[in-house]
Simulated scan of single mutants.
Amino acid sequence: MTATHSFSTLVPDVILDAVESTGLWSDSRIYPLNSYENRVYQIGIEDSSPVIAKFYRPERWNEAQIQEEHQTLLKLKAAGVPVVAPLEFNGASLFEHKDMYFCLYPRLVGQHPEADNLDQLYQLGELIGKLHQALSTTMFKERLNVSPLAQMDVAANQILTGNTLLKAPLPKALQLPEKLKPLYIKQIARLRELSEARIQAYWPTQLRPIHGDSHRSNLMLHEGQFHLLDFDDCQNGVAVQDLWLHITQTENPRQQLSEIIEGYESYQPFETRELDLVDVFKSVRVISYAAWLQSRWHDPAFVKAFSWFGSEEYWINHLNELKSCELEWGQISR
């Protein structure tokens, strides 16, 4: 893979050539789907159903990591877990075209879960329990191991210094304003202190393979059954990471939590002490999201979709969100 590659070269002819290199014949219809980290398109196929083409962001995952993702999905599908696995052509699921890795998926039509539907939350718990049960025998060898404090430190340091992994310097307009840095340092220190205390009080003796980013947009209700999509962030982590994102009520989350866990325990026992880690993962997600937007500033898709990013108002709102993480600390585990 070349270091200079970017999505700017991913023009329609390149997309179609890549798809047709697998042996399919397109009808030249390309429909971009909502994806920022990678590029995803629905491609029309002659005399057949459309396929979904996913082009991986260069230099994010290496070939072995993507292959492990694909092999996991294919094994899950074979085991009857409702996931969307990549299509295989002559025994291969990962391909390279113009220095970019890509794969094809079958198109799945359906709806995302309703945030406050308790019946659906129970079903989501069942699905994730079934997933964790199927994954329980083999740890990922190529994917990342979750490390909340390290992730928090890296993201916060980037925001404070403006130093990303990009070769070009980060524009001043996208950096945290100097006058807000003392407040940010204080708030991060407080969340890190709380997080470290929680992790010291309980951390599982062994991590487990998980989806890693099972928010509502990565679930699809298709023909009466929920399917898990997009294992791009699969990793060795903690079971509750795949559950807490579905808790949307802030005043009384217990009812939602009860439904999710009840469904989960249809397949897997749930260690309730993991609930003490929800605040940790929530704080890390809030910090990391801001750092992620900052590190992708050079991507035109981000400039267009997140034009509000980087203003003083944005950073003030970000600080308020971090403060909310502190004020709501312990609400789930109480």
Rank of each mutant, 00 (worst) to 15 (best):
W292C: 04
I52M: 06
L16R: 02
R192M: 05
F270N: 03
Q255W: 09
Q42Y: 12
N38S: 12
A239D: 15
N145M: 11
T137Q: 13
V303S: 09
H112K: 15
M139Q: 12
V51W: 07
A239G: 15
K141L: 01
E328K: 12
K75Q: 08
A115R: 11
S214V: 01
A92I: 04
K172V: 10
P269K: 06
E193C: 10
E321L: 15
V109P: 08
V280W: 00
T138D: 07
E328P: 07
Y101T: 01
S214K: 00
H5Q: 10
L144T: 06
E193S: 11
F309P: 06
L118K: 05
S307W: 07
T138Y: 04
H5P: 04
M220H: 09
G110A: 12
F89P: 03
A64F: 00
A3S: 14
N145V: 11
F281Q: 02
L183E: 13
N317S: 13
N157M: 12
I316H: 15
K141E: 00
L121A: 00
D276P: 08
V11E: 15
D27K: 13
A156N: 03
A201H: 15
D232F: 09
G263E: 04
H132D: 05
F102P: 01
E178D: 14
F140P: 01
V280Q: 01
S195F: 03
L194S: 00
V303G: 08
S333E: 11
E274F: 06
I188N: 00
A115I: 06
G330I: 14
T2D: 15
V284R: 00
N90W: 09
W244G: 01
L144H: 06
G310P: 11
F270K: 02
M139T: 08
Q235A: 01
Q123L: 07
E265V: 12
P148D: 03
F302E: 00
F306L: 08
E63R: 03
G237P: 01
